[in-house]
Structures are given as C-alpha cells and as structure tokens.
C-alpha cells in the first residue's frame, strides 16, 4: 500500500508543470477579467467590451467567419469522404496521407501560400481575371478570410469524418435501393440521421478551431482585420495600447462562446436519434 503512495510522487512534476503552464494562466485570466482599472472588483471590463462597437464588430466577424468556414469545410469534407470511400484503395490512401500532411499546413505558411495564389497579383487571381471569370478579388476581406479558413478546415473535417462513415453499411444503401429509395431519400432518411452525431461533433471542433485561430489572419492582414483573437493579442502584445485586464475579459468571452457551443452540442446530441435509443 505504501508503495502506491510513493508512486503518487511521480505524478507531482507532471501536475506541477501542467498547472504552471496551463491551469494558472487560465485562472489568472479569470480573475483579472473582474479587476477594474482602479484595482477593484467589478464587471467594468466586460461592460467595456460589450459597449464598444469596435469589439462587438470583432465578435461578429469572428462568428461569421467561423460559422461559414465551418459549414463550408464540413460540406466539402462530407462530399469528399463519401466519395473517398467509393474509390480504389491506392487513390484513397494517397489522398488520405496527403490530407494528413496538409492538416499541418496552416498559420503563417498558409497565409503566404494564399497571397501567392490569390493575392492582388496572385497566380489564380490573374488566371481567372484573364479568363473573365472574375472582375477582381480581394483576399484581405471577410470573404477572403472565409476562403482561407475553409481551406484549413477541409483536412481536419476529412480526418475527423472518415472513421465516422464506418457506421454506414453498404447493404443499407442496397436495401434502400431495392425498396425504391433514390440516393436523395437514402441520404435524407438513413445516412444523415446515422451520421448526425459525428457531423455535429466535427462541426463543433471546426467552429472552435476557427474561433481561436490567430496565426493565419495575423499573417495575412498583419493584424489589421478585426477578429477576437487579433484584438486579444493587440491588447497584450500590441505597440499602441496595452490593457491585460480588458484582454482577459475578451479572452473569457471567447472561451464562454466555445463553452456555449459545446453545451448546445451536448443538448442536440441528447435530442438526436442516438440519444433517444
């Protein structure tokens, strides 16, 4: 028995370092967000954020970009995975390995690659302009950011969804076809209900991934596009105006947003087909 408690000591360094680099900073933010400029307790930081059109705009842009890029990324991943499971294994393995590698292709390198491809003088921009497909394209706008965010959501979506499609058995499709259901009805009544929990779970992860993303948007716009992570970083490491307590309130709101999404996800899961069973 004594042996067991000695073993507990081996856990100590791990707990200590995890606390120092993960738990304590988080706790510090929680506390600091409730400390006012005068050093007293209060909600003034939160009030400042929620009264400011500038910060509200950042929250709105963050939500819009995250929502659209997650939806688009999820849709592309569903269509892609559905087809990936039907092609021969050599092509499939090649694409899966490549997807695995591109899931690491995010942040600064991705932003630079997109500037070369779709910036003002980007290769694809010029090609599409010469073909007359587009008049002009500005990567440094909300639409451009949704595009680049969607790009880094696709590999993540594919990798998360691929195993989930194991749940769909081939004979279900055949049975449905025998009973006279076309592909649309098969998806509507069989595939989608079975996949709902996986789709919701993937969507939540993509959403959180986009909400917290900082490197890509920072590198693309040198911190000039107004989203929450950029605002937080500017408040603690910018060169104009520093306010760590306000940054803490903003950070807490971001974490709260993610928490709300997770709670809604759990609630939806309970209501879904699987929760009832």
């Amino acid at each position: 028995m004594k042996h067991r408690y000695w073993a507990l000591l081996l856990l100590l360094p791990f707990i200590l370092f995890f606390a120092v680099f993960q738990l304590v900073p988080l706790a510090w933010i929680m506390v600091a967000s409730f400390v006012t400029v005068d050093g007293e307790w209060g909600l003034s930081n939160y009030r400042d954020v929620l009264d400011s059109p500038f910060y509200l705009q950042a929250i709105r842009y963050s939500l819009e970009i995250s929502l659209w890029s997650s939806l688009l990324g999820l849709a592309i991943a569903v269509i892609g995975v559905q087809s990936l499971r039907q092609v021969d294994s050599r092509l499939r393995d090649m694409v899966i390995s490549f997807t695995n590698m591109t899931s690491n292709f995010a942040g600064v390198p991705l932003a630079f690659a997109f500037i070369i491809l779709l910036g003002f003088n980007g290769t694809l921009t010029l090609l599409l302009k010469q073909l007359g497909v587009i008049e002009d394209f500005n990567l440094y706008t909300k639409g451009g950011l949704i595009l680049i965010y969607t790009y880094f959501q696709i590999p993540l979506g594919v990798l998360l969804l691929y195993p989930a499609f194991d749940a769909l058995r081939d004979d279900w499709r055949e049975s449905a076809a025998l009973l006279g259901a076309g592909p649309l009805r098969y998806w509507r009544h069989i595939a989608l209900p079975v996949l709902t929990p996986a789709l919701l779970g993937t969507f939540v992860i993509l959403l959180a991934n986009a909400l917290g993303a900082y490197a890509t948007v920072y590198a693309l716009t040198t911190g000039n596009f107004n989203v929450v992570p950029v605002r937080i970083a500017a408040l603690v490491a910018g060169d104009i105006y520093l306010d760590p307590n306000l940054a803490s309130a903003l950070a807490m709101l971001l974490v709260a947003l993610m928490a709300v999404i997770t709670v809604v996800h759990q609630w939806l899961l309970k209501r879904s087909y699987h929760g009832k069973g």
Binding site: F18, Q22, P25, I29, G212, I232, V236, P244, A247, V255
Partner: peptide, 21 residues
C-alpha cells in the same frame, strides 16, 4: 478531462495569462 484543456483553450487566450505571470 485535463488534456482537453490545451485543445479547448486557444493559445492566444493562454498567452494573456502567461505574459502577465
């Protein structure tokens, strides 16, 4: 549960606390 934290808390959020500490 603990190892979910580094996933769930974006680095930009942790940085606020780390910079002060």
């Amino acid at each position: 549960v603990l190892i979910l934290l580094p996933f769930a808390v974006p680095p930009v959020v942790s940085s606020v606390g780390l910079l002060q500490l």
